[in-house]
Amino acid sequence: MIEFTDIRKAYGEDVVLGPVSGRIPAGGVTSLVGPNGAGKSTLLTIIGRLAEPTSGTVTVDGLDVHRAKSQDVARTLSILRQENHFTARVTVRELVSFGRFPHSRGRLTKQDLAHIDDALDFLHLGDLQHRYLDQLSGGQRQRAYVAMVLAQDTRYVLLDEPLNNLDMKHSVRMMSQLRRAADELGKTVVLIVHDINFAATYSDRIIALRDGRIAASDTVDAMMRAEVLSEVFDTPVQIHEVDGKRTAVYYR
């Protein structure tokens, strides 16, 4: 379970987040949604200990992520940022191999190689494994990054907008792969999604942020209501049933 208590992030006088508290139970997919500047990324990077909160604590399975040894945290949770800039020119397989670093500190064992192959297979990257990242399309590259965090084999996987730059087809594939990771591999997936319908279709829970606060947090069914979403996104949202699924319509 991820538990964050009184998390606050401020730059000088500007409070961009919090204080917020909450829990994300183990297992399943949880989506963070909200308008731009709501603090979604800030919250996710603080949970993933890439940013220090101004105050407050985050524990993951009882481990204080900002105090514990970085290596121990890296075996419990993995986090992927939206933009990745690498100095080195690496192949897909090399990138995915980096995911094993917290376990083997660079010396790959047989077990590591098995994990790398599994992660590549899981995201259908077998044929691309010897390509360099700069020879891939945006969608393929995004899959390679996700394969790296899956190879890290942590119980918790945090992803900052994994659908960024993906077209319809690849977005659907990415989401169903993440759903499979939760169902088949038992991962706890926490991700930021912009499209509320993607969040509704593939997640178990939705946490909505607005103005640095948690505006609402509940199961998908409870969240997919016109008054809740209109309030969160500050824009009129209608809910229609499409094939028995609640779908948000907000284009006008």
Partner: peptide, 8 residues
């Protein structure tokens, strides 16, 4: 960020 994620 990626290095921190890997426990460095």
């Amino acid at each position: 960020d990626a290095a921190t994620n890997l426990g460095v």
